[in-house]
Nucleic acid binder design. Structure first.
Lengths: 195, 195
DNA sequence: TCATGGTCTTGATCTAAATCAAGTTATTTG
DNA sequence: CAAATAACTTGATTTAGATCAAGACCATGA
């Protein structure tokens, strides 16, 4: 119950619309609470991402492993973020990504088919989806620009000012990987920036 | 007129829905043809991106200029692609990007306010918007992964297999910039790959 | 409680790709 | 058509950041 309160608030705030009691019951009937312990996987490479999850508590990382066995973190996620490999989720193709809990994780999850229903029947939900999709497009554009035009230092400064929570919640080596850096390089950047 | 035929076909194909005669008239009334000659700008850094354009003919690049005066191409666009800085277009903030015609360009353009109307009143248009937004999310995810995990060679091979048209339509130095490489490096990669 | 494995730092070395430079080939445009 | 400008190649040099290596500082659980 209390899980859903935060979820409902989130939908109403993002969408700027109100959820009716019927809407809420529909959501509660089809979003299931899923708990994962630290280091458990929400999604494994090769599996189809059947569920999309809304993070109620905890954090996660989305990453790939390249041929040399190196991990690359594409996304770090916290409370009130959505968790999924959207390519696999939309197209029902096997995922190239892994999603792993970095802290004990609690999500509200549902299936693609159910999401389609919510979009059709719950105006606040579909308005939220539009806003999120805009935000994602904008965030992706920014991240791509940063990856192409910025130096390692600049990318770190950017993260410090845009996602200060990350520094509190994620170990430094995860942040390095998210920025596309080796842990050693990030350590040196931080050392230099103390002056 | 004939411009609009291709546009209508595109909307119907992507959305999987049919446009009524009324829908078509609404679109024709509010999408204006805009022609740009090679090297003219569809959008200049600092301006708000008031229009979104659908490319009927020609090509364009979206790029930034960094402090050192270096250009970075974030997007290369061809026929049947949408042209805009979405951040600026959605939020009405000044753009950090330039959009320049690389060939003589013909677009059908409209404003944010008008697009909202189309989304509200034309089911095929709003279905199209959802599909495009999915495709963008997927494409961005892939591009980000490529930027983080792939070497220069791999990124080029990826482009050759996923966007072979680019090789026909864009000069090599533009492709280099799109891949985040210097023109010299791309030239050497191509030389090596002939064996 | 201590030992075991993960995390962070610091230094030395290496490497992929950028930069600098100069010449060659194409494309525009007056 | 010639002149000018842009695009491409090739070689020499530099550099940002990766990799390798080793020690210090932790958590956390048996």
């Amino acid at each position: 119950m209390s899980n859903f309160e935060a979820f409902f608030d989130y939908i109403q705030e993002i969408s700027g619309k109100v959820l009716s009691e019927d809407d809420k019951h529909l959501l509660m009937a089809h979003f299931k609470t899923k708990k994962l312990r630290k280091r458990q996987y929400f999604l494994q490479e090769g599996d189809v991402c059947k569920y999309i999850g809304f993070i109620v508590k905890g954090s996660a990382r989305t990453f790939t492993v390249d041929e040399k066995g190196h991990e690359h973190i594409l996304k770090l996620s916290l409370e009130n973020w959505w968790l999924a490999d959207f390519e696999s989720f939309y197209l029902l193709t096997p995922s190239r990504f892994n999603i792993e809990a970095l802290e004990d994780l609690e999500v509200l999850q549902s299936t693609n088919a159910q999401i389609e229903e919510f979009l059709k029947h719950i105006p606040a939900f579909s308005a939220m989806a539009n806003v999120i999709s805009q935000n994602y497009t904008i965030a992706n554009q920014k991240r791509m620009q940063a990856a192409m035009s910025y130096t390692a230092e600049e990318r770190y400064e950017d993260l410090v000012s845009n996602y200060p929570q990350f520094l509190q919640r994620f170990p430094q080596n995860m942040i390095a990987s998210y920025l596309g850096l080796s842990p050693e390089t990030l350590s040196r950047i931080r050392k230099n920036s103390f002056k």
